[in-house]
Amino acid sequence: MRGEERREAILSYLKRASLPVKGGELSKLYNVSRQVIVQDIALLRAEGHDIIATPQGYVLMVNNNQFIKKIIAVKHNENQIEDELRTIVSLGGRVLDVTIEHKIYGEITGKLMLRSIYDVEMFVKKLRESNAKPLSNLTEGVHIHTIEADSEKDMERITKALKEKGFLIE
């Protein structure tokens, strides 16, 4: 399969995927190395396709206006990360990203794409096992999330719960 054909096939596969797709899965599917997939994704991005790399794999972002999106500012310590994320997804929300305002570098954003309790558990597990520090450690626990929900009512429940737990900054 030529590179152009493979990239079209990758794009088609990502369009149909309901969950993030790991690079290793794509490399096996198209019988190429993981590095070739990384290059293919870079070329697809250069063509204007909104493909993001998340901890769970690649996601093709589709402009879907049926969801309610909100940017929230929160603060908590490292031990409360799982509680915060579980609160959001258990009430029907999705955590799209995390952003901090760094003194030197300005905004730093990490894509999360957490949609379920399982996603939260895997994210927290990777965080613990890697001994990596969350971005919010650079800002004394203050950070921003873009969250998404199916309805305004779901979004209200999420923000109310975060406020009750003392996480939401207003």
Rank of each mutant, 00 (worst) to 15 (best):
R2C: 04
E4K: 13
E4A: 12
S12Q: 13
S12Y: 12
L14H: 02
A17I: 06
S18M: 02
P20T: 02
Q35G: 12
V36M: 13
D40E: 14
I41D: 03
I41E: 06
L43E: 15
I52Q: 00
T54N: 00
M61R: 14
Q66V: 01
Q66F: 12
K69S: 11
I72T: 03
N79M: 08
D83R: 13
R86K: 11
R94Y: 09
T99G: 14
T99N: 11
I100G: 11
G106I: 08
I108K: 14
I108G: 05
G110T: 09
K111T: 04
R115M: 04
S116Y: 10
V120D: 01
V120M: 01
M122H: 04
K126W: 10
S130G: 11
A132L: 12
P134Y: 11
S136R: 14
S136E: 00
E140R: 14
V142F: 00
H143L: 04
H143W: 07
H143E: 07
H145Y: 05
H145R: 00
I147K: 09
I147V: 11
I147N: 10
K153F: 08
D154R: 14
M155E: 01
M155L: 02
E156I: 02
E156T: 06
I158P: 06
A161E: 08
K163P: 00
I169S: 07
